[in-house]
Design a binder for these strands. Structure first.
Lengths: 198, 198
DNA sequence: AGTCAAGTGGACGGGGGTCTCCACTTGTCA
DNA sequence: TGACAAGTGGAGACCCCCGTCCACTTGACT
């Protein structure tokens, strides 16, 4: 691969990550190309389809998720591990608008191995936290999806909103109480933005 | 207005409500026209823009929300009133895919009076529930928006998922505990559907 | 320096969306 | 029953998207 081509490819990827994070997955390919200072053809030469660009752009985020789970499994405190996973993944989701969409879009086919591993890791985490009596017994690992989807509904809202939601949910998941982060007045036109899509 | 025209208009409205509920706000005007057995021009004669059709189609839902709040205010038990509002509105949202989008789309301009009234009603409800000691003191009326957005993230998922989320959240809002509805295994491709948009 | 494949950009095809235009039909009222 | 305005449907203008094609440019190697 030629040096300038490699550089262009890298710049496209960077720009794509920025734009996906800011505006969601439905940003036009032309916009990415323009911001990267290349033509559309260059994009399609490196990434045969938009989906492939999305996947490539989010690979490191996916890996990050995996790392979060592994790290949590290493934590001696079961509840802290559990809580940290949820907090970190939701934070990632809240600060990157394209993440959720890329996440679910990539799930059915690609990354299925990664997904299996993360899933089992999380299930183990849940079991540990239950055994230690800090997580309610009727919590289901499927509730992680519930949390992710709910948190995904806050796309475009300030990160603090997501943090408050997560705090509420963790409160409900646990046996005990904690102080919540302060309320966030959510202006509604935040939601008027175009929704994410691959 | 001619009799057949009135009938057509009514049929369009019915069909629009059905399709918006089933497939979200991004169903094409042509699809609505086809299912209603009319041409596109007929649609645009009655509703100059798609947005106007949406607003008209959801007016009664908005009114329903208002009624829910009023009803809750009449409830002698503050917590039950509070809980019922959240449960009913979220149920409405979960069973009608276009509702959330129409709700937020309509907010900035139209229905602002209705909105004010509902908002004040809900704030009163919150205060009452707090005074009775059943709602946590740091709950903010803004958290209603948080709940609505989070619940909106479950669009397309089974209603039971929304119900579980709401139960978790109410758990967190309250002082005390309750049994949750059973977990719902959410298949992820539910989220792959095209998202709502006006 | 010369060569040439790799690289590039912009025009374009195809599809799907909203909304308009216009010739035709149909309900209604005298 | 006849006249006419209200009502109607379908073609198509316009726009935005993804992905392709092709003539041109440029880096790298001899």
């Amino acid at each position: 691969m030629r040096a300038d081509a490699r550089e262009n490819r890298a710049r496209v990827l960077t720009v794509a990550r920025e734009l996906f994070a800011e505006r969601g997955l439905d940003v036009p390919m032309a916009a990415i190309a323009r911001r990267a200072g290349v033509g559309v053809a260059t994009l399609y030469r490196r990434f045969p389809t938009k989906e492939s660009l999305v996947m490539e752009a989010f690979t490191e985020q996916f890996a990050h998720c995996q790392a979060v789970v592994d790290e949590a499994l290493a934590d001696p405190d079961p509840w802290r591990g559990f809580r940290t996973v949820i907090e970190k993944v939701c934070l990632l989701q809240a600060s990157d608008r394209g993440f959720t969409a890329a996440f679910v879009a990539g799930f059915p086919d690609l990354h299925s191995e990664l997904r299996e591993r993360s899933w089992h890791g999380f299930a183990a985490l849940v079991q540990r936290a239950k055994d230690s009596g800090q997580l309610r017994a009727d919590f289901s690992p499927h509730d992680l999806t519930l949390v992710l989807m709910a948190n995904g509904g806050l796309a475009g809202a300030p990160v603090a909103a997501s943090q408050r939601l997560v705090a509420y949910l963790l409160e409900a998941f646990r046996t005990g109480t904690d102080e919540l982060p302060p309320p966030v007045p959510l202006s509604l036109d935040l939601v008027l933005r175009q929704p994410d899509r691959v």
